[in-house]
Design a protein around this nucleic acid. Structure first.
Lengths: 108, 108
DNA sequence: TAATTATATCGCAATATTACGATTAAATAA
DNA sequence: TTATTTAATCGTAATATTGCGATATAATTA
């Protein structure tokens, strides 16, 4: 149905899935890397960095903001975006459980 | 368009985005956690663990397998799935760049 | 061989995502 | 006030995802 049975999962699982989902698009990864590369806040010159329209970049930025991966602040006519790394540790921590050695007797 | 301009990104970015995307659904996170919880290979009793139909679970398993997050091996009439942690370090490594301290002069 | 079991795939419907041009809104500059 | 600049939002079209019932496939068992 293209709709997810969200009521069946814990809040934590839903939150993590939301973060992963936001990270699950190459444009958003590129945006995050570009913002992270800058030492200070950058503004909408992401548009000139990526081969997407202003409208599309803006939508991706909103998605990243919604899940809390970036913050934005109006400054004049432009908007300054920067990383919000608050949630990154949860994501990294979650992945650790999958870093145990592969079971050698299993699915060779 | 619901289609991504994949030709604009590096293979590495596309691969990471694919992994994040696969992780970006609560059912798939739940499946991974369930598989990881078992000490040995488990089979399709994931179906009885999650509130999804056999067809839907099977689809999610295929997606996880496609991006290489799990491996599957036929054993009798059933199929044994287990984690493939091969790609996890890339994902974790990628996230490290975002773990630098937030710029305090930026987007208070 | 026929039935059973376990899983994958097909076909479909509902919803979501992606992208963009056009428009709107809000702040600044002329 | 009127332009200009910058970014968000609207509307639309194309494609993707999610989910399930039904069916197919493949190995096992009777």
């Amino acid at each position: 149905m293209g709709i997810t049975k969200t009521e069946s999962y814990t809040d934590q699982t839903l939150m993590l899935a939301g973060l992963f989902k936001a990270l699950g698009h190459p444009a958003r990864l590129a945006i995050l890397q570009y913002i992270s590369k800058q030492s200070s806040c950058i503004c909408g010159d992401i548009v000139s960095e990526l081969p997407l329209s202003q409208a599309s970049i803006s939508r991706h930025l909103q998605e990243l903001k919604t899940v809390g991966l970036i913050k934005g602040e109006i400054s004049g006519t432009s908007v300054c975006y920067c990383l919000n790394n608050e949630h990154i540790p949860y994501v990294s921590q979650f992945l650790i459980q999958f870093q145990t050695p592969n079971n050698p007797t299993c699915c060779s």
